[in-house]
Write a protein that binds this DNA or RNA. Structure first.
Lengths: 193, 193
DNA sequence: CTTTTTTCTTGACATAGGTCAATGACGACG
DNA sequence: CGTCGTCATTGACCTATGTCAAGAAAAAAG
């Protein structure tokens, strides 16, 4: 526990040994079995979760009942319903585990204290958020300017392991297309090469 | 100058009078005429800009030469090519003024100093970024789950003044549809009521 | 005002991707 | 090792939105 987190933190800020020890006290470890929920739509998101092991996803369900995956969170990623966490409003996202997972949970309180005791974390979270904005904006622009095939190609280029760890229909959902369409795209793509 | 900025900052953090004075020194005021560029694709984004007056937009141009608007920035909003600003890589976005505008520019250096001298600003920027993530994620999920008509309706509901200040084809571009489609959608919508 | 440029509308047609339904392929589990 | 649920594939057809081209209308420029 905490190895992945500290490696991740070290990329952005430097922590002393004491700070690391202190830091640990703010997190609550939690294990999740595959298919278990971390957060259900309508509940308040009380934690941001850091993934030490395994993987989760967050998704919304629209009026017609279809799922739309917002995020996959692999080892070393954070996941939460940011809006619900920030405001205390009911969550619009559902979060569940795609594999057996080990998490570090940070409550709002704990986050406040962490930031107060180790202000460097302000910078850490700021940088995280910055990268998140950049990535989400890119995804949006891709949605507006590229075909489904192009987006799929880019996704697997940028993360080769995804097809091995995530069922195809979830990749489709992440890309904003139907499983049928993704299946056809893949067929075409293999035909090409 | 600075009225809009300080009002905006005050929503998120409290500044003393001295801090405000100090703060001012980090910003460079700049006026932009309508249609003038703040940033061109390929140049490095050296500033984040706060809009005191007027409005800007940021957009990308795809391989086929079509524009895709990422953001409109009205009074009280920030705008930049975050990735380019963060990394010093050439910008993928272009930013220009849709109206005569007054800006406050913050360079990377100035930002670093601002954060160092008035650490409260870490929190301010963190909250800004958080809202930005939330909004961009919503837009992405809308793109994946809603029709063009629904997205247009929501946009004008959430910002009634937009159609008055922004040409229709730019709203279309922001929504990720063609001007023709938006024109047809509007026709249908007036037919309904 | 008149001219020019930009923006918006409309029609005819094309196409990417969605929908529905059936079938096959697997892996998990009793 | 059979059965059940999940996942992927495929076909036939449908629909939202894109493309191209031509005008009309509005706004900016002279």
């Amino acid at each position: 526990m905490f190895e992945v987190l500290f490696r991740n933190v070290a990329d952005k800020i430097d922590l002393t040994e004491e700070e690391k020890q202190l830091c640990k006290s703010f997190f609550a470890p939690k294990k999740l079995r595959k298919r278990q929920y971390l957060l259900q739509e309508g509940d308040v998101c009380k934690y941001v979760a850091f993934v030490e092991k395994g993987m989760l996803r967050s998704y919304t369900i629209d009026d017609k009942g279809s799922e739309h995956i917002m995020q996959f969170a692999f080892e070393g990623w954070w996941i939460a319903d940011n809006y619900s966490f920030l405001t205390g409003e009911p969550a619009t996202y559902t979060i569940d585990a795609l594999e057996d997972s080990e998490l570090l949970l940070l409550s709002k309180q704990a986050e406040d204290q962490l930031l107060e005791k180790i202000p460097k974390f302000e910078k850490y979270f700021r940088l995280l958020l910055q990268n998140n904005v950049i990535a989400t904006q890119r995804r949006l622009m891709s949605s507006h300017s590229q075909t489904a095939e192009e987006r799929y190609q880019q996704l697997i280029d940028s993360c080769e392991t995804i097809p091995q760890r995530v069922p195809q229909h979830m990749i489709a959902s992440f890309l904003g297309i139907t499983p049928e369409t993704l299946s056809r795209i893949r067929k075409q793509m293999t035909a090409k090469n």
